[in-house]
Amino acid sequence: MENAGIPSATICTDRFIPTAEGMAKMWGAADYPTIFTEHPIENLDRDALRSRAEELAPLVVQVLVGDSQ
């Protein structure tokens, strides 16, 4: 999406760090700023998931409007 000119942010749980970094490298963007969060999230209830999203929101904003990309 970034290649298509669409600002994007990727959130990934920390058990998938090698996969995310490998994919970024495969696409020639080894320093792509993936946002990592503690694994797992699949068992979080609605409130815990919202809380996690609120924690991550500033990082998403930073990636989308910051100058790191």
Partner: peptide, 10 residues
């Protein structure tokens, strides 16, 4: 196809 266990095969 790069379906490597632990990397892209999860």
């Amino acid at each position: 196809c790069a379906a490597i266990p632990g990397l892209f095969d999860r």
